[in-house]
Amino acid sequence: MSQELDLPPALRPEVEAARRHVSLSPEIEARVMAAVRRRAAPPQQRAWRWLTAPSLPPWSLLAAAAAALLAFVIFRPASVGSPGVASPRATAVGPESVYVRFILVAPNAREVALAGTFNGWDPATAPLSRADTAGTWTVTVALPVGQHQYAFIVDGRRWVPDPAAPAVDDGFGRKNSVVSVSAAQGRIL
């Protein structure tokens, strides 16, 4: 049996050739790590961490904690919407733009701002105000009709996507939220 299990002589040169070292593309590392960063804090985990963290978590956790923030972006004509924190809304202000109210529930945040393609990603132009003791933060901004990307900035350094809105890769391993404003339909998609 052992003789039969020796490598057949005719295969030896071919096996020698097959033993050559194989190196894969060095780009694998970047691709794997990009995927790892995206998976580092899935929404459910992020929400749980946000709700259970005894103190401010590090960046990786807080990026994820976005999902724990009950954020809503809802757009309705002004005559339909009712005032109040629980009813975020947008109001048409002209044929080309509407007011959109962004709401984020961030109980542990000291400050929250909104940055997006509509304000040159400058959070200083759209700070959110704390609306109640439950940690609800709101801001209303006028957005041109069209599609915009945005994120919330919590405590000046943590970029938090809106878990209630569609998201796209920002090209740097993180997500931006997307809002589509349509004056005709009065909806944010």
Partner: peptide, 30 residues
């Protein structure tokens, strides 16, 4: 999480030959 890159560098090529011979091409192994 960034420490995972250490494992990626350590094992990226270690089993590359196995995978390429099992799958029949370097592209598939990658």
């Amino acid at each position: 999480v960034e420490q995972y890159a250490v494992l990626v560098r350590r094992y990226k090529d270690r089993y590359a030959r196995y995978a390429s011979r099992m799958l029949g091409s370097v592209d598939a192994a990658e």
